[in-house]
Write a protein that binds this DNA or RNA. Sequence first.
DNA 1: AAATGCGTTTGATAAATATCAAATACGCTG
DNA 2: CAGCGTATTTGATATTTATCAAACGCATTT
Lengths: 232, 232
Amino acid sequence: MRPHELTQLTALPLFSEMEEESLASLLDAALLQQFPTGVILIREGDHADFLHVLVEGLVEIFTEQNGVEWGISLVNPVSTFILAAVVSDQPYLNSARTLANSRILLIPAQRVRAIFDRDVAFARIVARELALAYRSSVKKLKGYMARSSVERLANWILAEARKDAAQGNIVVPFDRGTLASHIGTTRENLSRSLALLTDHGVRIRGREIVIDAKDQLEAFARPQRFIDDPTS
Amino acid sequence: MRPHELTQLTALPLFSEMEEESLASLLDAALLQQFPTGVILIREGDHADFLHVLVEGLVEIFTEQNGVEWGISLVNPVSTFILAAVVSDQPYLNSARTLANSRILLIPAQRVRAIFDRDVAFARIVARELALAYRSSVKKLKGYMARSSVERLANWILAEARKDAAQGNIVVPFDRGTLASHIGTTRENLSRSLALLTDHGVRIRGREIVIDAKDQLEAFARPQRFIDDPTS
DNA sequence: AAATGCGTTTGATAAATATCAAATACGCTG
DNA sequence: CAGCGTATTTGATATTTATCAAACGCATTT
């Protein structure tokens, strides 16, 4: 493992406060692997053998129903995924694939559970991570129940712009079909929704989305603290 | 606290394996309160001061958006709710109200966090509870993305029938509007959906739903392990 | 530059869902 | 049991979303 990667890992909320000994034990059993774009990492129904930590790249969590794929969440570095399956020792509810070249740390699930029992600080942080994951899932559910697909899209764009900090434009790092599956609509309707947002402060340049008038987009999207604020 | 209630509490997965001393400390600080139907227990945005344990009765978790209420989940005894807000020490994402006379145990959030740090068994179980809560939220999300409202209703009926074990008929313990908000539709369309299910092995008798042909209903609903099986 | 292939958009239509209005059913009170 | 108020269902219509088909744009190849 490269030195700066180790630094990134120890900086992860999940690992930051734990005992050195425990961290060493986790990383000792871990494998760091590189995957190209489009690789299926996890299949719905498989047993959770490894906790995954995305060190670099991009991963999507998705499910396939009747031949159609639906996006559950997008994972950015540096963060873990499928922690819940590892903690509850149950099969994965969803599949996962890389959407870019990715480096992923694989930690044996048993080891994670063992350290959990030994290191209170780690246990606390795992619980907090799970709580936050749960909350973000509930927020997504709220978005689905109360909003139209255009509104979901508008709020997704605002959320992306917020995290890029580059403010003003974002570049979607995957195709329209994938974006549609995460917004909860079809490719065709996503296209129409994007066209519609053109009247609300947004310009579409292929995969780039330029926000010309953030206030106008916000007036349309009406973001809410307990749905769209990731820190709440 | 009545003796048989104490028994119920210690039988809760959340409390079953923990040290006696820790359990005593939790219950020592706890308040057992009785609430009539329709009482708001928790308001979205409030800070999480107490872990709630529903000992008896029925509670719904819901959110209000633009004057319309949407059901997030239904809580049956004996189980906890808003554990995630307590663990992450954050404001509630949703509101909660009683849907029946209910007895609820209120445990100060600080105390829960303190015991978490002291008792590994409790910590493990809290993490598992959170993981399960997270997974059930993801399952609900999957249901929303991949199913029509009639299908959601059909699967909800099957799930209720499964847990009642009385198999064959269920009695919905609240009004149509509330049910609609949990299925993710309107009162009017819920009514039509119920009428439609009449062709698929179900009879509607006011608040009672009689399942005449479970196989027929299942053929229509097509329940899935990783959406509808609460143990997965 | 023409041809090919793939992703995306646009158009037309169908299906699902929501909304508004009215009728009906139901439970409760007097 | 009649009358009243509320909950529920039914009907008509509008809106949203999905589906199928075709056109377009764009990059790469020949």
